[in-house]
């Protein structure tokens, strides 16, 4: 896997086609790092020109904004837009639906106008174009799909990830609540960074129960926070070894034996 920063690439006289926005989770969280590595590997394999901001990347500010801290959010937004514009970035791909939403829908208010894609959108496009070939083989194990709120309900992307699952020839079984009715993993709106308010159950455990009810051995996801939450939920049910939570990029890498 070869990943370069945009600074390095520009210094060597090249310009990347896409900026890969990694996000705090992808940069620092051990589990999410596996997802961004898988995605970078896919781009390497099919020859997509991309670069990362590396240490010049900073949080988009989404958790601060949803927690009510507008100052902090806008500070992040203004600084990030300056950085992105300095490198003349036009197209951004990100593996995090929260970064995706903020970059795409909220940055234009501060002068940041970019073409922003969630990695599932690009993966599906590359599959459709024939650029990304999926190895054929036997139908995979029973898999369910967890819609993240910020890709699904918030941005209306329900069918794209499901198309990837069908390209992967997986035996997909939907949960009791899915697509526009999908149940949140419990991480959004700043919940990831705080203890739950008093209640009967944790949201991720409720979602894990819906996963288990399908009998699926794999949960396909598209968000680093959902992955953490679902894994914790499954762990609370002592099923962490029986049911795997994997990002769509990881499923592709697995299928292609890369």
């Amino acid at each position: 896997m070869v990943v370069q920063t945009i600074q390095q690439l520009i210094a060597s006289g090249e310009k990347p086609e896409y900026l890969f926005w990694v996000g705090c989770a992808g940069n620092f969280d051990a589990r999410a790092q596996k997802v961004v590595r898988a995605f970078a590997l896919i781009m390497n394999q099919i020859g997509v020109s991309f670069a990362v901001l590396g240490n010049e990347e900073s949080c988009t500010g989404d958790p601060a904004r949803r927690a009510g801290n507008e100052f902090l959010f806008q500070m992040q937004a203004l600084q990030n837009i300056q950085t992105l514009q300095a490198y003349e970035v036009t197209r951004i791909i990100t593996t995090c639906p929260h970064c995706f939403n903020t970059l795409k829908n909220e940055y234009p208010d501060y002068g940041g106008n970019f073409e922003v894609y969630h990695h599932t959108e690009m993966l599906n496009q590359w599959i459709q174009e024939g650029k990304l070939k999926i190895e054929s083989g036997e139908t995979g194990s029973k898999t369910t799909y967890h819609d993240s709120c910020y890709l699904g309900r918030v941005n209306g992307i329900y069918s794209v990830p499901r198309e990837i699952l069908s390209a992967l020839q997986l035996d997909v079984i939907e949960m009791e609540q899915s697509a526009s009715r999908g149940l949140c993993c419990g991480a959004g709106g700043g919940q990831m960074f705080k203890e739950d308010e008093p209640g009967d159950q944790r949201i991720n455990v409720a979602r894990a129960e819906q996963v288990l009810a399908t009998g699926a051995k794999t949960v396909a996801a598209n968000c680093p926070f959902c992955i953490t939450m679902l894994q914790d939920g499954l762990k609370a049910k002592d099923k962490q070894d029986e049911v795997m939570v994997l990002d769509l990029a990881e499923l592709i890498v697995q299928k292609n034996n890369w």
């Binding site: 920063t5 990694v22 705090c24 992808g26 940069n27 620092f28 969280d29 790092q33 961004v36 590595r37 990362v52 901001l53 590396g54 240490n55 990347e57 900073s58 949080c59 500010g61 958790p63 601060a64 927690a67 801290n69 902090l72 500070m75 992040q76 600084q79 700043g190 960074f193």
Partner: peptide, 21 residues
């Protein structure tokens, strides 16, 4: 989370190398 964002631009107070991965 707020403090970390303000001081280092990350939601977690961690070793701040975004290139390690």
């Amino acid at each position: 989370m707020f403090n970390s964002l303000e001081s280092s631009g990350s939601v977690w107070q961690v070793n701040q190398d975004r290139e390690a991965w």
